[in-house]
Amino acid sequence: MKILTTVKKVVDVELTIRVQAGAIVEDGLQYVINAWDENAVEAAVQLKENNNAETTLVSIGGGDNTDMIRKCYAMGIEKGIHVEDPALEKADSPVFARVLKKVFEKGDYDLVITGKQAQDTDSGQTGIMLAEYLGLPCVSNVIDIQVLDDQHIKVSRLGDAGTEIIELELPAVVTVTDSINEPRLPQMRGIMMAKKKPIDVMDLSALGISIDDADGAAAPTSEIVEFMASKTREAGQKFEGDAAQITAQVVSLLVDEANVL
């Protein structure tokens, strides 16, 4: 089984993010692997270890993301593709999905594993759209993957009514959520080996995409006009001291001041 895993380099959400004049202030930002993509990588590596799968990752954009790809190598991914092209600067999820489609068509993959969403966009569209463009079956929000045979996998998905158990015919696309696994920390040996591994870097023309081609990267259908600061909540009243006294006080405030009890 050949697996393609998608990984995106995203801004570190744990750090402070400031907005000025409609844009995010670059100063002081750091970039890391998208958390859910780490789960996707771990899922792929587990399928390599348990089911002899071959693992390839692809990352689109992000500038120099050698460090991130090497981290995934150190976790156990065997091959890496980096698509980098200035034309992708304003790409949205459908554009990324169409580029991924070309990557998919160049390899002979059986399974694509993406993260459930990218932490910078919080959009949750790319993997599902990729499947739709390819005409492949897709399950999103997956928490478990079992290989049945060469042509089938069984996945569990967290849905609205409970956990759905779904049998998928390969090739297929799944998007994974964080409760699927605990991504491993790369070990020293893996880190050393990862340093020597090549990364296959290509631009859109190498993928056979012309910028003006509507099927390719052209014309995002959604465009961020401006960023705004989120409405931040103010810290309210904090009570310390005798538990009985402060708790009684807070309850009466919930009744009389906040009117919520």
Partner: peptide, 20 residues
């Protein structure tokens, strides 16, 4: 048509123009 949405774990809001 424009939509507003949170992004980056609710740390920012985006105003997004729809070009379709």
């Amino acid at each position: 048509v424009e939509v507003t949405r949170p992004a980056i774990a609710n740390k920012v809001m985006q105003r997004v123009r729809i070009n379709a």
